[in-house]
Design a protein around this nucleic acid. Structure first.
Lengths: 222, 222
DNA sequence: GCCCAAATTACGGAAATCCGTAAGGAAGTG
DNA sequence: CACTTCCTTACGGATTTCCGTAATTTGGGC
């Protein structure tokens, strides 16, 4: 199993919880923890320079800003910077995020090795994830692998996303028309926008624009 | 310090984190933990019957439903039931909730003894809260006492949240009126709902309902 | 070129939203 | 009690949404 692990998590209680699991349930000896991305990066860098590098980084995604000014504001920044120096370090993300496409993005763009969702089964999932990643696997969470979670995936093109973005910003359809024409984006008639949005209502079983935006916000599509 | 404490928290990692703090930082000997309200209540009841009662209950508010059917679905239910049997038990709530009026309600309606907000300073706050409650104090969190936290927070009451929820579900104002009247919730005129929502537009600088829902979704208020 | 399917556009009407003004009611103060 | 203040309620009108039908354009295959 891993010997040397770095944990980055700003919520102290969760931080301590992870430490306890790594110590008690997995039996990892050398664990360091950080409450800020920058702090985590410094510990990582020092260990790397001392030729006593970490084998695994476990990090949250969102770090609440506070009085300390940080250059890195999210776990994504941390992962990028760490991987730039030590490309082979294993990375497990431990986060609240449960939206499949958001999680998939982490695997595709950042090549993370595992993901664990904060939740009721987090200990078992974390232990299994550690095991899998140690053996070289890529460990997807149930939120992504379960059939039920994947079935209702609707693929939207860029224009759909654009419309949803503008609607979420509170623009009326007429205002969107104006904006599209100004930016020379087609189609740009009010009628077509109506039709496209009506199709989105259908796809997402939305009753009206407000409902639609609420749904796609929850899905993390915008 | 307290000798016998019961911890109710459904997220395993947070649960373990609390245990670690209570053990390592406070030095409490006898700690029991539960992942469900009903489970917590059973442990409490057994200890009470065995004349070896808990002195303190630390509980979360929201418990995510899963396959196990529960009669108690929130920490509030748990607190009520526990206090009905053992009125003098101390209660500390440990929750995500940071809205001042929600937290105040817990002190006023349930007479809880302390509140700790899940966050970056949770360990220090929890330790201080334990100390204070042990000495008979009522320990309010910084979220309630600090001026700075209250100023830039738009405090929404339950009715506002209710409206936002219904709007996000795609109900029209007329449908909301019907629902409110059916559930005997006042106020329930279309005009008042209009006014309330208009005030929310003002508060959040929203252009229309869709924009408003997008904003409060982003803020995580609903 | 011709035909077809799909997408875009135009238009109209019932319903809902948004935003005024104004009247009625409850609670607190002197 | 009179007065103020805040909240609720009623109502109307301009704008927008939502959802039809129908005409027009686009793109591909033969």
């Amino acid at each position: 199993m891993f010997d040397k692990v770095l944990v980055a998590e700003d919520y102290e209680i969760a931080n301590q919880g992870i430490l306890k699991v790594l110590t008690d349930d997995v039996g990892i000896q050398c664990i360091e923890e950080a409450k800020y991305c920058d702090e985590a990066f410094l510990k990582f860098k020092k260990a790397h320079q001392d030729e006593n590098a970490f084998e695994l980084l476990i990090t949250d995604l969102s770090f609440k800003p506070d009085h300390k000014v940080q250059t890195r504001t999210s776990g994504i920044d941390l992962i990028k910077d760490v991987r730039a120096i030590q490309p082979d370090i294993k990375v497990i993300v431990y986060s609240q995020e449960s939206r499949p496409d958001k999680i998939n993005m982490l695997f595709e763009k950042l090549n993370i090795n595992g993901y664990v969702c904060k939740g009721q089964q987090a200990i078992r999932e974390l232990v299994q994830c550690l095991q899998g990643v140690y053996e070289g696997e890529t460990v997807l969470p149930p939120e992504v692998t379960d059939r039920a979670n994947r079935d209702n995936v609707i693929d939207l093109d860029d224009f759909d996303i654009l419309l949803l973005d503008e609607l979420a910003m509170g623009l009326t359809k007429r205002e969107i028309v104006v904006k599209l024409k100004k930016n020379k984006i087609k189609p740009n008639s009010e009628s077509t926008i109506d039709k496209r949005v009506a199709k989105l209502f259908d796809d997402f079983k939305a009753k009206n624009t407000t409902h639609l935006v609420a749904i796609v916000k929850d899905l993390g599509l915008i």
